[in-house]
Design a protein around this nucleic acid. Structure first.
Lengths: 121, 121
DNA sequence: ACTTGCATTAGAGCACACTCTAAATGATAA
DNA sequence: TTATCATTTAGAGTGTGCTCTAATGCAAGT
């Protein structure tokens, strides 16, 4: 798969794909004879995981740490689980905060609604 | 109220308080004889609103736009309502995304749980 | 062969939202 | 009074995560 195709599939820009490789978030991708990147299924799986965790709000350095643990094999399973659990808690708090914000904004909107209503009467 | 007190009350750093003033997110704060900032209730209300909206994920430039509308009086009510509604939708989508991420991470954690269990047996 | 379009690299630049520094002055307590 | 602490300013610096540029080269169609 070419970088173009992977970009379309993942939604990551070609720049970002190269950037992730440069900072070691994904391994060095194999190259064609003419020095073009050819992504394999492994690369795609990794990228999918990365996208998921980025959406989950995990920072790049934490993600890199996690990925390095993965490559160290089975004896890092507990530590990896810990990282995920930590992240899960972070998301839960984030959701709570956003829900609080929602209430605040909804209250403000209702306020405006009654102001607008009164203006029309 | 001094900048120190306001900082403690709002959770914003003193640097940030001066920064918000510099970029026009709050009006110029009155100064004491010795050129120290003295915040009044109005300033505090504004800051509380700002904190709420920042938590809600509104960017600083949007927030500034909104605040400028507010100072233009009653005939911008509809537009302000529009901005809030837009932001509300943004938050809803953000929450949905985070919930999706949660599921993904929970799935991963359960996976690890069964791996860890098998290791112990 | 020529043009168009895709790829490569190192490294610079950008957007956001702070955060910190340095130098100076004012306030407070022993 | 002297030491210590808080505040002021303009402006520089930081961290995160991209995003873009310039120079160069390969590839495919006409």
């Amino acid at each position: 798969m070419t970088i173009q195709e992977v970009s379309e599939k993942t939604g990551l820009s070609k720049h970002t794909l190269r950037y992730y490789e440069k900072i070691g978030l994904i391994d060095t991708v194999k190259k064609s004879k003419s020095n073009y990147r050819i992504y394999n299924q492994n690369d795609l799986n990794r990228l999918e995981f990365i996208c998921n965790m980025r959406e989950a709000g995990m920072g790049i350095s934490k993600l890199k740490e996690y990925i390095q643990l993965t490559s160290q094999g089975e004896n890092t399973v507990e530590e990896r689980r810990g990282i995920l659990l930590e992240n899960k808690k972070k998301i839960q708090e984030e959701i709570k905060l956003l829900e609080k914000s929602m209430n605040y904004i909804e209250y403000k909107i209702e306020n405006y609604d009654s102001i607008i209503k009164n203006k029309k009467i």
